[in-house]
C-alpha cells in the first residue's frame, strides 16, 4: 500500500489545489449571495488573469510584484465592466436571464482571447524563485507555499472586509434583502459593483496561481475551474462564505485523491466525480454542508 510520505504528499497537493478552488468559490459565493447568479464569466477571469500576468512578466519584463498588482487590477476592471454592461440592466428580471448572459459573457471573453492571442496553449514559466524545489519529508515548490499563504492572507483580509468595512457590511445587508437594503439607504448599485470587482480581482489572481502551478495556460483553461468553484459553493452551502471555502478545499482533496489513490484509468473521471458528488449532495442535503435554508 501507500507509505505515509505518499499520503501526506497527496494531502498537501490536495490542499494546494483546494486553495485555488476555495479562492474562486469565495468570489462566486459573494456574487451568488448578492445577485443569485452563477457567474459563468467568473471562469473567464482566470484565463484573463493568467494571460495578463504572462504577458506582463515575460513580454514586458515587469517586476513580479508589479505584474501581480496589475493583474489584480485588470481583473477588477473586467469585473466592473461585465457588471456595468451585462448585468445591471437585467437585474430584477427573470433569474435565468442573468445566467444566460453570464454564459454569453464567458464565451465572448474566451473567444476574444482565442482570437487575439492564440488558439494554442502557452507554456507558463515561473519566475525562478518560485520554482525552487524543496525536498524534505514531502516534495514541493515555493509556488505551492506561495499559493497556500496567499490564500490564507486573502481569506483573512476578506473576512475583515466583510465584517468590518462599510461596504462589506452593506454587502451582507444586500445579501439578506436587496429591497430592504435600498430602503435603509445603502447604495445598491455601488455595492454590487464592488462585489463584482472584488470577486473578479481574486479570480484573476487565481489565474496566475493556476498557470504557475500547472505550467500551461490556454484560452479555455478557466471554464472547468469556474464551474467547479460553483460546485464548491453548492456543496459547502449556498449563502455561506466559510461553506464555499470548505467546499473548495474538499473538492481539491477529492480530485487529487482520485488521481493519487484510485487505479490509473480513473484519473479521466476526476471532473465527473465532482459532479456526481454535487448531485448526491443536492439530493441528500440540498442546503449544503454549512448552508442555511433558502427562502424560495
Amino acid at each position: 500500500m501507500y507509505g505515509a510520505s505518499y499520503i501526506y504528499q497527496q494531502i498537501f497537493n490536495g490542499i494546494v489545489l483546494g486553495s485555488i478552488y476555495a479562492l474562486l468559490a469565495l468570489g462566486m459565493a459573494l456574487v451568488y449571495g448578492i445577485l443569485g447568479l452563477i457567474n459563468f464569466a467568473h471562469g473567464a477571469l482566470i484565463t484573463i488573469g493568467a494571460f495578463c500576468f504572462y504577458f506582463l512578466l515575460f513580454k514586458f519584463n515587469l517586476p513580479f510584484v508589479l505584474a501581480i498588482i496589475l493583474t489584480i487590477s485588470l481583473g477588477g476592471f473586467v469585473g466592473f465592466l461585465s457588471e456595468a454592461i451585462g448585468y445591471r440592466k437585467l437585474r430584477g428580471g427573470p433569474g435565468l436571464s442573468l445566467l444566460i448572459t453570464s454564459l454569453g459573457i464567458y464565451i465572448f471573453i474566451e473567444n476574444a482571447i482565442k482570437l487575439l492571442i492564440s488558439p494554442q496553449p502557452y507554456a507558463f514559466f515561473n519566475p525562478p524563485f518560485l520554482n525552487r524545489i524543496i525536498n524534505s519529508f514531502i516534495t514541493f515548490r515555493v509556488i505551492d507555499i506561495f499559493i497556500i499563504i496567499t490564500t490564507i492572507v486573502i481569506m483573512i483580509c476578506f473576512g475583515l472586509f466583510v465584517k468590518r468595512s462599510k461596504i462589506g457590511i452593506a454587502m451582507r445587508g444586500i445579501a439578506e434583502s436587496v429591497e430592504t437594503a435600498g430602503l435603509v439607504g445603502i447604495n445598491v448599485n455601488q455595492v454590487i459593483t464592488w462585489s463584482f470587482v472584488v470577486a473578479s480581482a481574486i479570480a484573476a489572481l487565481t489565474g496566475f496561481m493556476w498557470g504557475a502551478k500547472y505550467g500551461q495556460i490556454s484560452y479555455n483553461m478557466g471554464f472547468m475551474p469556474g464551474v467547479i468553484a460553483f460546485v464548491a459553493v453548492v456543496i459547502g452551502g449556498i449563502g455561506s462564505i466559510p461553506g464555499a471555502v470548505l467546499g473548495g478545499f474538499l473538492i481539491g482533496l477529492i480530485q487529487i485523491f482520485t488521481v493519487g489513490f484510485l487505479p490509473l484509468g480513473w484519473s479521466v473521471y476526476r471532473d465527473a466525480i465532482v459532479f456526481t458528488l454535487l448531485i448526491i449532495v443536492l439530493l441528500i442535503k440540498p442546503m449544503g454542508i454549512l448552508g442555511r435554508r433558502e427562502s424560495m
Binding site: L37, L96, F275
Partner: peptide
C-alpha cells in the same frame, strides 16, 4: 433554476 443548470451541465460532463 441555477442548481438544475449546473447539475445538468454536470450530467453532460459525466
Amino acid at each position: 433554476g441555477h442548481y438544475l443548470a449546473v447539475a445538468s451541465l454536470g450530467f453532460m460532463i459525466i
